[in-house]
C-alpha cells in the first residue's frame, strides 16, 4: 500500500498522537496534569496543521481546554487558548468549503447549492464577528517583557485567522478588490509581527498567511524579514521551508499569472509545515 504524504513526517506523528489520545478519552479516562501539558503542545501543532490543510483537527479542543489553561498563559499557546475553539470552527468551515459539502438541515435533508452558499456565508459572518470580538485573557502573573510578546502573538493569530477566513470565502485571485483587501489585512499581521526577532518563536503560521498575500517588492521584503526573524529565534527547518514555499511557489506563481492560492499549492508541494 502506498503511503500518502499525510501519513509522513510531522503530519503522521500528529495524527498518530491524535489516534492515541482519542482512544484514551474514549474510555472516559482522566489524564494527569503532565499528560495534559504534553497534549496541549501536540494540540497546538495539530490545530496549525489542520488550518493549513483545511481539515478538522484530530485533537478536539474539548479534550484539553479547561478552566486552568484559560486563566493563566499557556506555554504553547500563550494567551490564545480561548481562541482555539473558534479556530476549530474555522477548520470545520474550511474543510466543508474545500470539500464543497452541501448544507444539511436538522433532518439530514440536503439543501440546494444556492441555499448552501447563503447558509455558509452566514456561518462565516457569524464566526468572523466572534473572532473580531475575541480578546485574550490578559493575566498579571508573568514578567512585563513576556507580556508584550504574548500580546503580539495573540493579536497576530487573531488577525491572521480573520484573513484566513476571508480567503476561504474569497480565494486568492478571485478579484482585484478582494486581493487588495487581503493585502491590507496581511500588512496588519506583518506589522504586528514586526517585534524583535527573538520574540517570534511560534508565529510561523500567521507569517505564512500574511506573507503569501504580499505583492510589492517592499512589502515582500517586510515578510522576508519576519521569516528570517522566526528562523533567528528558533533555528527550525520549518521556518526555512515555509519561506521557500512562499517565495518559490506562491509569489512566483502570482508573478507568472498562474494560480497562486497557497491553500491549493500546499497540497501540490508538501513539506511546508508552518510550525
Amino acid at each position: 500500500m502506498k503511503t500518502s504524504p499525510e501519513e509522513l513526517g510531522l503530519s503522521g506523528l500528529l495524527s498518530s498522537a491524535a489516534i492515541l489520545v482519542n482512544r484514551f478519552f474514549l474510555h472516559d479516562r482522566h489524564a494527569s496534569h503532565i499528560a495534559k501539558y504534553f497534549l496541549r503542545a501536540l494540540a497546538r501543532q495539530d490545530m496549525i496543521m489542520s488550518l493549513t490543510y483545511r481539515r478538522r483537527p484530530g485533537i478536539r479542543t474539548a479534550l484539553w481546554l479547561d478552566e486552568e489553561c484559560v486563566s493563566s498563559p499557556d506555554r504553547f499557546m500563550g494567551w490564545t487558548t480561548s481562541l482555539m475553539p473558534l479556530l476549530e470552527e474555522l477548520c470545520e468551515l474550511a474543510e466543508d468549503t474545500r470539500l464543497g459539502l452541501r448544507w444539511e438541515d436538522a433532518d439530514g435533508k440536503e439543501d440546494d447549492s444556492l441555499s448552501t452558499g447563503i447558509l455558509r456565508h452566514k456561518q462565516a459572518i457569524d464566526l468572523q464577528l466572534r473572532i473580531e470580538d475575541w480578546q485574550p485573557v490578559v493575566t498579571d502573573n508573568i514578567p512585563v517583557a513576556s507580556k508584550s510578546t504574548l500580546l503580539a502573538h495573540a493579536t497576530a493569530l487573531q488577525l491572521a485567522s480573520l484573513l484566513y477566513l476571508y480567503r476561504i470565502q474569497y480565494p486568492a485571485g478571485s478579484s482585484l478588490a478582494c486581493d487588495q483587501q487581503a493585502i491590507d489585512m496581511g500588512k496588519q499581521v506583518l506589522s504586528t509581527l514586526g517585534v524583535v526577532p527573538e520574540k517570534l518563536k511560534t508565529m510561523l503560521w500567521p507569517a505564512l498567511v500574511a506573507a503569501c498575500e504580499m505583492l510589492h517588492v517592499e512589502d515582500r521584503a517586510v515578510a522576508l524579514e519576519v521569516f528570517d526573524g522566526v528562523y533567528t529565534s528558533r533555528a527550525t527547518a520549518t521556518a526555512l521551508a515555509v519561506k521557500a514555499f512562499c517565495m518559490e511557489r506562491v509569489w512566483q506563481a502570482r508573478d507568472r499569472e498562474q494560480d497562486w492560492d497557497w491553500m491549493k499549492l500546499i497540497y501540490r508541494y508538501p513539506g511546508c509545515t508552518p510550525i
Partner: peptide
C-alpha cells in the same frame, strides 16, 4: 510524541 515532533521540526533542515 512531543519530542519527536520537535525533532521533526528541526531536522528536515538537512
Amino acid at each position: 510524541f512531543v519530542q519527536l515532533t520537535g525533532l521533526e521540526v528541526r531536522a528536515s533542515n538537512r
